[in-house]
Design a protein around this nucleic acid. Structure first.
Lengths: 205, 205
DNA sequence: ATTTGACTTTTACACAAAAAAAGTCAGAAA
DNA sequence: TTTCTGACTTTTTTTGTGTAAAAGTCAAAT
């Protein structure tokens, strides 16, 4: 039961990801997903309580892929700058890979699951923030960064980057590749502006 | 003709602003506006080609009020920090004053006028950017800021602040006061983070 | 030059019927 | 017992249609 069930679970989730990456969530029926892998709709309901549960499993899988990318970007980074810039590159790559799904991420569609931001997203945010915090801490230890409040700073940084993403996610049409690139290029610029700072060093301390 | 016409123009625009500030643009009819000032709808059409033209005049008037606020904030500022922070305060105040209208600013409703960002908004952006550029230049001259590309920096700054505003403007419901405050407080935080910068001064130059 | 009553055209809205998708369940298959 | 499905009910979405309201026009009056 355990092994077999989880294999099937995974199979269904993968089929759902394929569908959701090509068509909007609300335009994809469970029947279609079931047929894709040659099972009946009631079978699908045997493994998932409802569409929301499936969607949550889908989200969790993709979010994990994002997070793994983030971790490897941060861990291999030789500097704070490199870490943050690589982090944005990972986002860009994964965003393009799961284009439709990613751009529906905090839309009304996915929020039907739970009226608040779904757990998956909240957890991902927290994890991401903690990764960025660690990076900043390292920078401070190495005397590359001024000693700021890493908690506050990492949160503000995330919120700033997210703010840029909201623009593209709130559109009803599927974002074009060049817009996605513009978005993440902009994020890089902001990060660099932040890191470099504006205040003249002469007047510091 | 000249004087009388422009007086009437203004009168109509003011009536329209009153209506638009209380009800959504699409829920306000030209008949209502006309009746408010005791004229007939065809009279209104004598002064404005169509609803879009009236909306444009309304936008222009309000945008000018914003811009005047910005100019006075920047001109009376004793430092770059104070200038930018006051600038955000002016936005907060005017945003609340024209709550409904401001939050519809780049929504679908107003974009029916012209499919691209209306001229008024573009011009306001340019003017704002030029004001911020001047402030940055002054800061550089006074050796308070590092000599950055003011054009690029002011644009990026505006885009960052705008990104935060998108979130609140894309909502269908009227933004609550506490959310507006949260938004502009966040903008202040970002500005301060930017001004302070993260890089340790020890390693500069 | 300015204004309006009476008019036409366009758009928005409410409501119902139809279609599609979500979800259930008794019972079959493995 | 676990897994699966055909046939079913319920809920949601879509579509169509008539109606109301708003946008916009125009000939004629002031």
């Amino acid at each position: 039961m355990k092994a077999a069930e989880s294999v099937k679970h995974e199979h269904i989730v993968d089929a759902a990801i394929k569908r959701f990456s090509h068509f909007r969530i609300n335009k994809t029926s469970l029947t279609e997903i079931a047929e894709d892998i040659g099972i009946s709709k009631p079978s699908l309901f045997y493994y998932f309580q409802d569409k929301s549960s499936l969607l949550e499993a889908v989200s969790r899988k993709i979010v994990n892929e994002f997070l793994e990318g983030f971790e490897s970007a941060f861990s291999s980074a030789k500097s704070v700058d490199e870490g943050l810039l690589d982090f944005i590159e990972v986002k860009r790559r994964h965003f393009k890979k799961y284009l439709l799904l990613a751009s529906q991420a905090d839309s009304v569609e996915i929020n039907k699951v739970s009226s608040q931001l779904p757990d998956v997203i909240i957890q991902a945010r927290e994890k991401t923030q903690s990764l960025i915090s660690d990076l900043l801490k390292k920078g401070i230890q190495q005397k590359v960064l001024t000693s700021v409040d890493v908690g506050k700073t990492s949160l503000l940084l995330i919120e700033t980057l997210e703010a840029f993403e909201h623009g593209i996610k709130s559109k009803t049409t599927v974002p074009e590749s060049k817009n996605i690139d513009a978005l993440f290029d902009k994020q890089k610029e902001v990060v660099q502006m932040l890191l470099n700072g504006l205040k003249s060093s002469q007047w510091k301390n």
